[in-house]
Nucleic acid binder design. Structure first.
Lengths: 233, 233
DNA sequence: CGCGGCTTTGATGTTCATCAAGTAAAGTGG
DNA sequence: CCACTTTACTTGATGAACATCAAAGCCGCG
């Protein structure tokens, strides 16, 4: 893992995640975690870990945006999903596998909260409510990935592009106007198309006045039409 | 859920799953589960539950083969995965969702072991080791589904068909000769192709002497070639 | 300044879905 | 048990969708 630990300014009792998740902690466990967590800042473009690396931390994203991806023998990347604040970067293998089965790199400057995996396991093993919460939360992430995969699979090129644009606009940024955090090629790697066809489809959506494009900046001008294209295509 | 409970002949202390999974149970919990589980037999073609049904049971497959699938508004099915003995039929939503997010129906006569979801939750909440085992096991299933989705997505038609044939032969039956438990259409629904192209591709593999076809019976004559097609295509 | 990566568009060809038509197999009702 | 209906399977022809190849402009960076 690149980067150096930050000064741990975060008091875990104030962590936004606590409400949803760490409420199952006793004060004792919370103090334990708080003293032993490490926050790592990462810059756009940096790699957090690679497929095959030893799993040392349980980690989740405090801020920023990252991509989870696999690289095939020919060197082509396949993006599994894009994760944002309070998403786990560790998928479900984290307690059963010893090595990462995918790579993670940074799309927008990020802060990662890391807890030693053995300590995490200890706490999970003596706190059933926490295990349960963990399972629910990690399950939600896995289910979202599975669902997205199925949605992508059944769409044609126009539907795929519309789908991912809506994901940026609704899920990730919550606004109709945003800067794409990824290259055209990365969009292609995410939805299983070629870069050229992603570009061509974006241009067509622009010509049809569904979106406006200015480099990385995208504005969804006609969300209803985009929804229609996503659902029909 | 169709079907009527079987006489519960299985003594849970003898359950094959116990070794891998239920060892985390105290004798007390095991007895609790054992008295309160129900085994349901299902016949080929029956539906175990449908998308949208209330989740009442935590359930796993003792024997047989089932498909998990979603049906879109147009009535077209998309197969998520095929599950075999000792796979969970409940995916990770089972503790966090109230309703099923997919349907399950039977490909080969099956016996399903069902445990009331509330009882399961109670036990998980007082037995952290069990929660942990559950998370590991359910995580493995989810990860397999995600991985398969990515593998399918990156292949062309020949690669997709080769991939799923190898799955039947290696993962499900462990033999080079087997009866397909699914129709050509279901294969298509699983790997995202049209029925016609599945058939065409099978015929081509037959002409190339990679497989032999006799109705539902498939023999993989040249496994190395099939692997090559799966990895290249 | 020049190199490499990203973006864009066009031309071309392959792959794949769709349409059509027919045979085989399996289920249904009299 | 047979006629009938439906579903599954198969092949061919066609066209649309999509990948590939090629070329050029753009931008950031050493």
């Amino acid at each position: 893992m690149e980067g150096h630990p930050m000064d741990s300014v975060c008091d875990c009792s104030q962590c936004e995640l606590r409400k949803a998740f760490f409420d199952s902690f006793s004060d004792e466990d919370l103090g334990d975690i708080c003293r032993n967590k490490t926050e790592f800042p990462f810059l756009r473009g940096e790699t957090i870990f690679r497929e095959g690396d030893l799993i040392r931390y349980f980690s989740y994203l405090k801020s920023g945006l990252v991509k989870l991806f696999k690289t095939d023998p020919a060197g082509k990347d396949q993006i599994i999903t894009i994760a944002g604040p309070y998403d786990f970067v560790s998928l479900l293998g984290v307690f059963s596998d010893t090595h990462q089965s995918y790579s993670v790199s940074v799309l927008e400057d990020a802060v990662l909260c890391c807890i030693d995996i053995e300590r995490m396991r200890e706490i999970a093993l003596r706190n059933a409510r926490f295990s349960m919460n963990l399972m629910e939360r990690m399950g939600a992430v896995s289910n979202k990935i599975i669902r997205e995969g199925l949605e992508i699979r059944k769409r044609n090129t126009h539907g795929k592009v519309a789908y991912i644009l809506l994901k940026f606009c609704k899920d990730i940024y919550g606004e109709c106007i945003f800067d794409l955090p990824v290259s055209r090629r990365e969009i292609a790697e995410n939805i299983g198309m070629t870069t050229e066809n992603v570009i061509r489809t974006l241009s067509e959506l622009r010509k049809e006045k569904v979106i406006r494009i200015n480099g990385k900046e995208i504005e969804v001008v006609d969300p209803a039409a985009l929804e229609r294209i996503s659902n029909y295509g």
